[in-house]
Write a protein that binds this DNA or RNA. Structure first.
Lengths: 226, 226
DNA sequence: ATTGTATTCAAGTGATTAGTTGATTAATAG
DNA sequence: CTATTAATCAACTAATCACTTGAATACAAT
């Protein structure tokens, strides 16, 4: 009794570490990354992550106990959601550190994607210039409703599930730039990977549609004020 | 062979999780928090964290493997350092999420510190006003060199190690506001805890000296341009 | 009530992790 | 060369974690 300051500090770090631990599993990160797109049920989550429902539920509860996600019951289903923007910030920071400092990440990207910087996102301004010159095919992988509400000019809308069937709609030669809701949207990431598998040249747009719009760049779809 | 996109995603998340795992231990977090103040040797680190040297070394190597810290050998000693500002950003995000979402953290703070908001940092502007009115004693817990280079006007410089001996220099009645290098500096945090133990009223300055200075508030010490 | 569906709980297994201890490797000084 | 110091390595134990399996809730429809 006199080291209570040390104890306090220790306990506090232990609490912080609980959050860290929650981030220490790839499946949980994938679940959260998916939740960053919006509310999902346990079943949906288990499917995209390729886990059993029970396992998914356990991961989600772990996340809930550390305050990273919240849940809401509606009828039979339980819907989970990220518990705030600070969680997205945290995931972003984690991703950034990993990409910058883990050489394995770089190696992975290089191994799986033939062209070295194919995963490097294309900046908004650059895309705009190329769109104007007709140099790229812009691919919007969001659900049709969102596409209808507004999209990058000239973008083709193909939800991820339909991508494989509708490959024909994309030019074989031109570079494709995929985007969805934001930098955390796995859809665009996934789309790029699949397109590359088919031998097409594809990259992601840096960020997503919301950022494009708030940056004041032109949009098509329902008029929104400009 | 056809699900390589899934494999890729999985592997990538596994890599991200490595960074998360590194954050999943209180001792490692404490080590990094300490490193946020600057370069330290293994021995120093083991002391402040209260770990054996071997154990500290193992933790540090784990952090190095995930790219969170770097090391540099000079003579007999090995000095560790955070590997970039993005790591500080990450730690910040982690702390924020934990403080906001983990009710245990709040409870901890309430339990250990008698006055509920004693750990709540005092904003810069508020401090400035109180300093002018002579209502607070400002305590600078940084090393003397840094104090000499510039400090909050009227601040007393007592490095943490000397705090217990030099308690007399601080008024018994007045509230004390401690600060050091930045929001991550454990020194101020620690100083507040120790002072409270002695029955003094103490709080931390929001952020630290660099922020104070860049906010354009007055400083004492070597003239820096204003 | 009975059936079906979505989720959670409980128990168990193999793998990973944190920490200890004692030996080992480097750099420096006498 | 020998001794000393700082750090790392290697081997081990207890604790924790990820995942599986099968049972148990909770809600909705019939």
């Amino acid at each position: 009794m006199a080291m209570s300051s040390t104890n306090f500090k220790h306990d506090l770090f232990t609490q912080f570490a609980r959050v860290g631990k929650a981030l220490g599993n790839g499946n949980r990160l994938e679940l959260m990354e998916f939740l960053a797109q919006g509310e999902r049920s346990v079943e949906e989550l288990s499917k995209v992550a390729g886990l059993t429902v029970a396992n998914t539920s356990q991961h989600l509860q772990q996340l809930r106990l550390t305050g990273l996600v919240t849940s809401r019951k509606e009828g039979l289903k339980v819907y989970y959601n990220l518990s705030g923007n600070d969680v997205i910030t945290l995931l972003d920071a984690l991703r950034q550190v990993a990409e910058r400092h883990l050489s394995d990440v770089e190696r992975l990207v290089n191994t799986y994607l033939t062209v070295k910087d194919s995963l490097e996102p294309i900046p908004r301004v650059e895309l705009l210039a190329r769109v104007r010159n007709g140099l790229v095919t812009v691919l919007d992988v969001r659900p049709p409703e969102e596409y209808a509400a507004g999209h990058v000019p000239g973008a083709i809308n193909i939800p991820l599930q339909e991508l494989e069937q509708r490959l024909g709609e994309l030019g074989e030669e031109q570079e494709i730039v995929a985007y969805c809701r934001g930098p955390h949207c796995v859809l665009a990431f996934d789309a790029v990977a699949r397109l590359r598998e088919k031998g097409l040249r594809a990259r992601r747009l840096e960020d997503g549609y919301p950022e494009w719009k708030t940056a004041g760049l032109p949009v098509e779809g329902k008029p929104t004020g400009s």
